[in-house]
Amino acid sequence: MQNIWAISKREFSSYFNSAIAFIAITVFLVLIGICVFYAEDFLGNNEATLRPLLKWAPLLFVFFLPAVTMRLISEEKKTGSLELLITMPIRDIELVLGKLLGAFFFLLVTLALTLLYPILIDFLGPLDWGTVIGGYAGLTLLGLAYLGIGVMTSCWTRNQIVAFILALLICGFLYFIDWMVGALWGSWASVFAHFSFKAHFDNIAKGVLDTRDILFYLSVVVLTVTVSTFSLESRRWT
Protein backbone atom coordinates (compact mmCIF):
# COMPACT_ATOMS: atom_id res chain seq x y z
CA MET A 1 0.00 0.00 0.00
CA GLN A 2 2.84 2.35 0.83
CA ASN A 3 4.37 1.78 -2.56
CA ILE A 4 1.12 2.59 -4.27
CA TRP A 5 0.76 5.73 -2.26
CA ALA A 6 4.32 6.79 -2.90
CA ILE A 7 4.02 6.26 -6.61
CA SER A 8 0.74 8.07 -6.79
CA LYS A 9 2.07 11.02 -4.89
CA ARG A 10 5.04 11.24 -7.14
CA GLU A 11 2.92 11.03 -10.27
CA PHE A 12 0.50 13.60 -9.00
CA SER A 13 3.30 16.01 -8.15
CA SER A 14 4.94 15.48 -11.49
CA TYR A 15 1.81 16.66 -13.24
CA PHE A 16 1.85 19.95 -11.47
CA ASN A 17 5.57 20.38 -11.51
CA SER A 18 5.38 21.13 -15.18
CA ALA A 19 3.25 23.39 -17.27
CA ILE A 20 1.49 20.48 -18.96
CA ALA A 21 -1.14 20.03 -16.30
CA PHE A 22 -1.93 23.68 -16.17
CA ILE A 23 -2.21 23.93 -19.90
CA ALA A 24 -4.30 20.81 -20.19
CA ILE A 25 -6.68 21.76 -17.41
CA THR A 26 -6.98 25.32 -18.61
CA VAL A 27 -7.82 24.16 -22.12
CA PHE A 28 -10.36 21.74 -20.69
CA LEU A 29 -12.01 24.45 -18.62
CA VAL A 30 -12.19 26.87 -21.51
CA LEU A 31 -13.57 24.24 -23.85
CA ILE A 32 -16.18 23.08 -21.39
CA GLY A 33 -17.23 26.67 -20.82
CA ILE A 34 -17.60 27.27 -24.53
CA CYS A 35 -19.58 24.08 -24.96
CA VAL A 36 -21.91 24.86 -22.10
CA PHE A 37 -22.57 28.48 -22.90
CA TYR A 38 -22.40 28.47 -26.66
CA ALA A 39 -22.89 25.00 -28.05
CA GLU A 40 -25.68 24.33 -25.56
CA ASP A 41 -26.82 27.94 -25.15
CA PHE A 42 -27.21 27.43 -21.44
CA LEU A 43 -28.54 30.91 -20.71
CA GLY A 44 -30.87 30.82 -23.68
CA ASN A 45 -32.46 27.60 -22.49
CA ASN A 46 -33.14 29.28 -19.18
CA GLU A 47 -32.94 26.08 -17.21
CA ALA A 48 -31.07 25.51 -13.97
CA THR A 49 -29.43 22.25 -14.87
CA LEU A 50 -26.04 20.72 -15.11
CA ARG A 51 -27.04 18.72 -18.14
CA PRO A 52 -24.95 20.69 -20.67
CA LEU A 53 -21.84 20.16 -18.59
CA LEU A 54 -22.61 16.49 -18.18
CA LYS A 55 -23.19 16.15 -21.88
CA TRP A 56 -19.87 17.63 -22.98
CA ALA A 57 -17.51 16.67 -20.18
CA PRO A 58 -17.48 12.95 -21.08
CA LEU A 59 -16.77 13.84 -24.69
CA LEU A 60 -13.90 16.06 -23.73
CA PHE A 61 -12.63 13.37 -21.40
CA VAL A 62 -12.27 11.07 -24.38
CA PHE A 63 -9.47 13.35 -25.53
CA PHE A 64 -8.31 14.80 -22.25
CA LEU A 65 -7.76 11.73 -20.13
CA PRO A 66 -5.79 9.67 -22.65
CA ALA A 67 -3.54 12.69 -22.91
CA VAL A 68 -3.09 12.57 -19.15
CA THR A 69 -2.23 8.88 -19.10
CA MET A 70 -0.25 8.48 -22.29
CA ARG A 71 3.11 9.06 -20.65
CA LEU A 72 2.55 7.13 -17.45
CA ILE A 73 4.20 3.88 -18.44
CA SER A 74 5.32 4.66 -21.98
CA GLU A 75 7.78 7.26 -20.83
CA GLU A 76 9.18 4.93 -18.21
CA LYS A 77 9.69 2.33 -20.90
CA LYS A 78 11.28 4.75 -23.28
CA THR A 79 13.64 6.31 -20.78
CA GLY A 80 14.57 2.93 -19.36
CA SER A 81 13.48 3.80 -15.85
CA LEU A 82 11.09 0.90 -15.96
CA GLU A 83 14.04 -1.51 -15.76
CA LEU A 84 15.18 0.35 -12.71
CA LEU A 85 11.87 -0.27 -11.11
CA ILE A 86 12.29 -3.99 -11.65
CA THR A 87 15.13 -3.92 -9.24
CA MET A 88 13.01 -2.28 -6.60
CA PRO A 89 10.67 -4.20 -4.34
CA ILE A 90 7.62 -2.94 -6.19
CA ARG A 91 5.13 -5.28 -7.66
CA ASP A 92 3.74 -4.60 -11.08
CA ILE A 93 0.25 -4.21 -9.80
CA GLU A 94 1.44 -1.67 -7.27
CA LEU A 95 3.06 0.27 -10.05
CA VAL A 96 -0.07 0.21 -12.14
CA LEU A 97 -2.31 1.16 -9.27
CA GLY A 98 0.04 3.88 -8.17
CA LYS A 99 0.11 5.39 -11.64
CA LEU A 100 -3.63 5.09 -11.91
CA LEU A 101 -4.20 6.67 -8.56
CA GLY A 102 -1.93 9.56 -9.41
CA ALA A 103 -3.85 10.20 -12.58
CA PHE A 104 -7.06 9.81 -10.65
CA PHE A 105 -6.07 12.55 -8.23
CA PHE A 106 -5.34 14.71 -11.23
CA LEU A 107 -8.84 13.97 -12.47
CA LEU A 108 -10.30 14.87 -9.10
CA VAL A 109 -8.53 18.22 -9.16
CA THR A 110 -10.01 18.89 -12.60
CA LEU A 111 -13.47 17.95 -11.43
CA ALA A 112 -13.07 20.00 -8.29
CA LEU A 113 -12.38 23.04 -10.39
CA THR A 114 -15.61 22.51 -12.32
CA LEU A 115 -17.58 22.58 -9.08
CA LEU A 116 -17.82 26.29 -9.62
CA TYR A 117 -20.41 25.48 -12.29
CA PRO A 118 -23.10 24.06 -10.01
CA ILE A 119 -22.33 26.71 -7.42
CA LEU A 120 -22.90 29.55 -9.84
CA ILE A 121 -25.82 27.86 -11.60
CA ASP A 122 -27.49 27.43 -8.24
CA PHE A 123 -27.05 31.14 -7.78
CA LEU A 124 -29.00 31.67 -11.00
CA GLY A 125 -31.76 29.16 -10.33
CA PRO A 126 -32.86 26.20 -8.22
CA LEU A 127 -30.50 23.39 -9.09
CA ASP A 128 -31.30 19.84 -8.18
CA TRP A 129 -28.28 18.84 -6.13
CA GLY A 130 -29.20 15.25 -6.44
CA THR A 131 -28.37 15.35 -10.10
CA VAL A 132 -25.18 17.22 -9.27
CA ILE A 133 -24.06 14.47 -6.93
CA GLY A 134 -25.05 11.87 -9.47
CA GLY A 135 -23.40 13.76 -12.28
CA TYR A 136 -20.11 14.10 -10.50
CA ALA A 137 -20.22 10.52 -9.34
CA GLY A 138 -20.75 9.55 -12.95
CA LEU A 139 -17.92 11.72 -14.17
CA THR A 140 -15.63 10.31 -11.53
CA LEU A 141 -16.42 6.72 -12.40
CA LEU A 142 -16.34 7.35 -16.12
CA GLY A 143 -13.07 9.22 -15.76
CA LEU A 144 -11.59 6.44 -13.71
CA ALA A 145 -12.55 3.93 -16.37
CA TYR A 146 -10.95 6.10 -19.04
CA LEU A 147 -7.84 6.42 -16.96
CA GLY A 148 -7.70 2.67 -16.60
CA ILE A 149 -7.86 2.31 -20.36
CA GLY A 150 -5.22 4.98 -20.74
CA VAL A 151 -2.87 3.24 -18.34
CA MET A 152 -3.47 -0.01 -20.14
CA THR A 153 -2.56 1.38 -23.56
CA SER A 154 0.39 3.14 -22.02
CA CYS A 155 1.63 -0.25 -20.87
CA TRP A 156 1.42 -1.64 -24.36
CA THR A 157 3.80 0.72 -26.09
CA ARG A 158 6.85 2.86 -25.58
CA ASN A 159 5.45 5.54 -27.84
CA GLN A 160 3.26 8.04 -26.03
CA ILE A 161 1.46 9.10 -29.16
CA VAL A 162 0.52 5.55 -29.96
CA ALA A 163 -0.66 5.10 -26.40
CA PHE A 164 -2.74 8.24 -26.68
CA ILE A 165 -4.34 7.26 -29.97
CA LEU A 166 -5.13 3.78 -28.80
CA ALA A 167 -6.68 5.03 -25.61
CA LEU A 168 -8.68 7.64 -27.49
CA LEU A 169 -10.03 5.08 -29.91
CA ILE A 170 -10.95 2.60 -27.22
CA CYS A 171 -12.59 5.22 -25.02
CA GLY A 172 -14.46 6.72 -27.93
CA PHE A 173 -15.63 3.35 -29.14
CA LEU A 174 -16.84 2.27 -25.74
CA TYR A 175 -18.61 5.55 -25.20
CA PHE A 176 -20.62 5.30 -28.39
CA ILE A 177 -20.73 1.56 -28.82
CA ASP A 178 -24.51 1.23 -28.74
CA TRP A 179 -24.96 3.93 -31.35
CA MET A 180 -22.25 2.55 -33.60
CA VAL A 181 -23.32 -1.05 -33.39
CA GLY A 182 -26.91 -0.02 -33.87
CA ALA A 183 -25.98 1.64 -37.13
CA LEU A 184 -24.51 -1.60 -38.41
CA TRP A 185 -26.38 -4.42 -36.74
CA GLY A 186 -29.60 -3.08 -35.38
CA SER A 187 -30.66 -6.26 -33.65
CA TRP A 188 -27.47 -6.33 -31.62
CA ALA A 189 -27.72 -2.74 -30.55
CA SER A 190 -29.63 -3.38 -27.38
CA VAL A 191 -27.14 -6.08 -26.40
CA PHE A 192 -24.21 -3.75 -26.86
CA ALA A 193 -26.01 -0.99 -25.05
CA HIS A 194 -25.01 -2.85 -21.87
CA PHE A 195 -21.40 -2.14 -22.71
CA SER A 196 -21.92 1.50 -23.53
CA PHE A 197 -20.16 3.91 -21.24
CA LYS A 198 -22.61 6.59 -22.16
CA ALA A 199 -25.66 4.52 -21.32
CA HIS A 200 -24.34 3.83 -17.85
CA PHE A 201 -23.17 7.38 -17.43
CA ASP A 202 -26.56 8.81 -18.37
CA ASN A 203 -28.23 6.76 -15.69
CA ILE A 204 -25.95 8.00 -12.95
CA ALA A 205 -25.92 11.53 -14.30
CA LYS A 206 -29.70 11.66 -13.90
CA GLY A 207 -29.16 11.44 -10.19
CA VAL A 208 -29.83 7.76 -9.76
CA LEU A 209 -27.06 5.74 -8.18
CA ASP A 210 -27.54 2.32 -9.58
CA THR A 211 -25.29 -0.45 -8.36
CA ARG A 212 -25.25 -1.88 -11.85
CA ASP A 213 -23.63 1.20 -13.28
CA ILE A 214 -21.13 1.48 -10.46
CA LEU A 215 -20.27 -2.18 -10.83
CA PHE A 216 -19.82 -1.74 -14.56
CA TYR A 217 -17.30 1.04 -14.29
CA LEU A 218 -15.41 -0.63 -11.49
CA SER A 219 -15.30 -3.80 -13.58
CA VAL A 220 -13.73 -1.86 -16.41
CA VAL A 221 -11.13 -0.51 -14.05
CA VAL A 222 -10.39 -3.94 -12.63
CA LEU A 223 -10.09 -5.43 -16.08
CA THR A 224 -7.78 -2.70 -17.36
CA VAL A 225 -5.62 -2.92 -14.26
CA THR A 226 -5.40 -6.67 -14.74
CA VAL A 227 -4.41 -6.36 -18.36
CA SER A 228 -1.94 -3.60 -17.52
CA THR A 229 -0.37 -5.71 -14.82
CA PHE A 230 0.08 -8.65 -17.12
CA SER A 231 1.42 -6.36 -19.81
CA LEU A 232 4.06 -5.14 -17.46
CA GLU A 233 4.77 -8.64 -16.24
CA SER A 234 5.38 -9.80 -19.76
CA ARG A 235 8.73 -8.05 -19.80
CA ARG A 236 9.94 -10.53 -17.20
CA TRP A 237 8.98 -13.42 -19.36
CA THR A 238 12.08 -13.08 -21.52
Binding site: F37, L43, A48, F123
Partner: peptide
Protein backbone atom coordinates in the same frame (compact mmCIF):
# COMPACT_ATOMS: atom_id res chain seq x y z
CA UNK B 1 -39.44 22.85 -14.34
CA UNK B 2 -36.40 24.66 -13.02
CA UNK B 3 -36.14 28.02 -14.68
CA UNK B 4 -33.31 30.37 -14.05
CA UNK B 5 -34.72 32.87 -11.62
CA UNK B 6 -32.13 35.58 -11.99
CA UNK B 7 -33.24 37.52 -14.99
CA UNK B 8 -30.75 40.34 -14.71
CA UNK B 9 -28.72 39.97 -17.85
CA UNK B 10 -25.65 41.54 -16.23
CA UNK B 11 -25.56 38.91 -13.56
CA UNK B 12 -26.04 36.19 -16.12
CA UNK B 13 -23.21 37.49 -18.23
CA UNK B 14 -21.03 37.77 -15.18
CA UNK B 15 -21.59 34.09 -14.49
CA UNK B 16 -20.89 33.21 -18.07
CA UNK B 17 -17.54 34.99 -18.18
CA UNK B 18 -16.62 33.88 -14.70
CA UNK B 19 -16.88 30.29 -15.84
CA UNK B 20 -15.45 30.56 -19.33
CA UNK B 21 -12.63 32.96 -18.59
Amino acid sequence: QRDLEVTDSDKREAVRWALIV
